[in-house]
Design a protein around this nucleic acid. Structure first.
Lengths: 202, 202, 202, 202
DNA sequence: GCCTAAACGAGACGGTACGTCGGGTCTTGAT
DNA sequence: ATCAAGACCCGACGTACCGTCTCGTTTAGGC
């Protein structure tokens, strides 16, 4: 079920119609491109207008400012990345596979975009929420893996994925953005063996 | 917003001498004041120069841009952050005390600054290193706590603080910047009880 | 001093239209005011923008630099100062009256302005031409006086005002700018009796 | 003969001695070089100090500003400008020779310098006096020519050079600075035949 | 199939801040 | 003790970007 959050507040009263939507899409596409290319801070409205072959007034007719365009652009980016994780037969196998899947789903563009938008997130809760839900957290649901492990008897009854969902994204972000290091297979197995499994097997 | 212009070197080749240091200190003091008064985004170099009774050229002689001045200013603010953690008699007590100490050491300005320079960190390894070592990681050394716990017999021989130093900063950053939530006592005890202790007691 | 930066083109490619012209006029008006008030050297683009209630970018969109704005401002100043000289009945009377008229037409502002742009005139022929024709030479036509004198028989047939137009402005400029002395009635009669009349009566 | 007017007032209290004079000369030489190479406006004190291998403080110890250094530099260039005018045997010959001598003594640098300091002359009477006496008027004394002409009987007893000294510099300045035209031989003979001689022969 | 009104591109505008440059003053270290 | 070297304050420079505001020009939709 689509959880439609209230989104009109973010946007100016806007035109409707086929043309309007075409312009909107062109602008959002350009915004995403620029966001990835130069980052949030150096994304200028002039450049955005030029890239989208749109007038600046058109942009401001649709959104009330830069943050809002970018928010919308990121929201449109919502290809559902949350694919199901494969069943490998063992809990650790499932975890390693899932971690690998999550890690490889992060592109450099993702990281650049998140880093670029991070400062704006502090003052724009809606942007922050969007980035979290659409870009960061939406990478996979570990609940299925946990449930399978419980069924197999590898984890005690009542085990949840909460801690995984709390710790794992933090570790990824920390490594990708703060330390600027890749999230490769070595990292994935390290996280699984040294952190996730101990936490769940305590 | 215009937070960070791309800069490879963190600081320009800078003058030395007593006068230079006096100016540097005056500028950094003014930077801190302004940072607190108006925030990073609205901190203008003109205002900084005026507040510090310095010429803008002097600022740019010492630093290559706004982000760098602010990083330096904050570094000076917390040069003594890495205080020893008190011995409370128990391992958990030590951890909770240390976590509390670390958490309260993070001001809003710290978070704003880190968020502001985050995008620049991706392309400026020196800046990244500086922020990591001076602002993020330099909050406290948990090795003493671990050693005490080993001596008390609360932890097995050979236990190290490595995992703590890997996981804890990531959790803090994630909460502060990504989720925009405060790192309060509740969070501190949660991290200690649900994550750090299980990890070390596996 | 920094009077003139090298510029091949007098003006930047400029916008057209009613709005543009209104801004242009406001800027040129402000430029003239400031030119008179503080002189060319101390006329800053910031002050000009503020006075004209214009953004600096607007000024630079229309002109490529300070010299060019001032050139244009002076060009627009072309109120025709060349009034006819009264017929007093005698050649000397006409001359003294005309000299008085010319002398009193020079305000301190004129002198300040000419002195201010003099250095720029050397490298900017168009500015030089403008200042000459609009500010210096345009003070009065002595031909009528000469013709009347010829008709009265006070001067031989074929007398022209050429020498007057050559010598008199030079003397005025010399006295006003080089010697910084006023062009008062005493000076006027001195010029007429000791220089102009002898030259024409040779 | 060099008419040394009081000139210390224009300059800061200055050191004396062999080294001081050596520095002074080096600075003035460099000033002249730069004046010729880049002109007055783009002659920067930094460049001057570097060229002269002198500290800027040394320059400001000797002179009170850019205009003064340049004035001094040019003065040194033409300390012997006021040569006696040759006796050609006739009054007109003397005049033409003298005018030629005076005209050719004006270099482009002279004109640039005078134009450059002209605005300052209006508010700095001392500078004005210096420029007038050292650069403009000090080009030659016509009194000897007049005296010779009186002795020859070409001029009446009691003739003075006053009018020549009043009119001629004004014409030169007018032509050089206002009209930006050269003072060549044609101009020299024109001034002599059409203006100076008629004025003296009235 | 026009005709009007909205939406559009293009980009000028007032502002704010940027980072640089040059003039004139002041400090430091070497000679 | 003097000087080169150059850091310093000040203030102007010319540029970039923001968000607003005209301009003419499409483009729909109601007649």
């Amino acid at each position: 079920m689509a959880v439609v959050t209230e989104e009109t507040a973010l946007r100016a009263p806007r035109p409707t119609g086929a043309r309007a939507e075409a312009r909107e899409q062109a602008i959002l596409d350009a915004a995403l491109e620029l966001l990835i290319e130069v980052g949030y801070d150096r994304l200028s409205m002039d450049a955005l207008a030029e890239r989208a072959k749109a007038g600046k007034a058109t942009i401001y007719r649709h959104w009330s400012g830069k943050a809002q365009v970018v928010v919308d652009a990121i929201r449109r980016m919502k290809c559902d990345r949350s694919e199901a994780f494969a069943d490998t037969g063992t809990f650790r196998g499932d975890l390693v596979g899932a971690m690998h899947q999550v890690c490889t789903s992060f592109t450099d563009d993702d990281v650049a975009m998140v880093a670029g938008v991070m400062s704006a997130m502090r003052t724009d809760p809606e942007l922050a929420e969007l980035v979290r839900t659409q870009v960061l957290d939406n990478r996979g649901d570990f609940n299925g893996i946990i449930e399978r492990a419980v069924r197999r008897g590898e984890l005690p009854e009542g085990s949840t994925a909460d801690l995984v969902h709390e710790v794992m994204p933090a570790l990824l972000i920390n490594r990708l953005i703060i330390h600027g290091q890749p999230v490769d297979d070595e990292f994935a197995t390290h996280v699984v063996d040294d952190i996730v499994l101990p936490l769940l097997h305590r």
